[in-house]
Design a protein around this nucleic acid. Sequence first.
DNA 1: AAATTGAACAACCGCAAGACT
DNA 2: CAGTCTTGCGGTTGTTCAATT
Length: 277
Amino acid sequence: MGRKPCCSRDGLRRGAWTQEEDKILSAYIKAHGEGRWRSLPSRAGLKRCGKSCRLRWLNYLRPDIKRGNISQEEDDLIIRLHKLLGNKWSLIAGRLPGRTDNEIKNYWNTHLSKTIIKHGNEHEHQNKIEMKKEKTLAIVETNNVVRTKARRCTSNVFITTTPQQQPHFDDHNEEHVNTGVLLHGNETANGDENNGHEIESWWDALMDFNMNDDWTWMNEASSPPIHNINAAEVEGDDDDDHHHQVMIESEADETRKPDLDLDLNALAAFLDWETYA
DNA sequence: AAATTGAACAACCGCAAGACT
DNA sequence: CAGTCTTGCGGTTGTTCAATT
């Protein structure tokens, strides 16, 4: 026996949702919360399958959905993230508050994919990345420290390469070289209780990159793909000093280690984190 | 005015992964 | 541990509507 279909089609409505159905679904979720989609239709009194209810809520009825046209800034971000992540619509949507994966997917398919082919926007966009990268690398070379201020994560976070980060060979596989960055979160700054959470999202951003083997956007064809990312909390000098260390394992030889350090800083530039000398 | 075309986006479908029993 | 359920994702299709012929 295979698995049962998510819902029987007999007697269930399909196609566009009516205002009445929207009202029922919204009211039900407001009262009982999201989840348990399979049983939701019968509980709410809707003649829809749970999957359809979930989609309708997530893509249309959710109160935090942003309506209206995609702004130029969002447009630019979508292009950059798509270049980086490919068709990972949910990840891209995660970086655009109020936008859904479905909306971004549709927007890409109807606007951007064609525009890029027609007008060479991608080339123009790539030039912008290169300029930003050069600017960042210049700072890195002179200071070896890049302080970043995230556009959407406002915690005091900075990347710094550290002297103790010497290449580390895996005993079992000499082809793997570890390099790392320290993510410092000043968790007491401004009394901002969400600071730690924002570091999490910062992390999350880094983790996302692990999903894309094509790292060539950062350092042309010779760039090594990210092999693995491990994150751990590191104790600082005093109790309040929490560091989060992210070790990025790449498939690189020892001679490429400096390049990789620079690439990580270019990452900050790519994400539009402002850099300060 | 009617038919056609294409853009925009809402909705559906199959699949996969993780949770649950 | 295997079978089932739930949820989420990405590709695809369907529908609507405005522009064009």
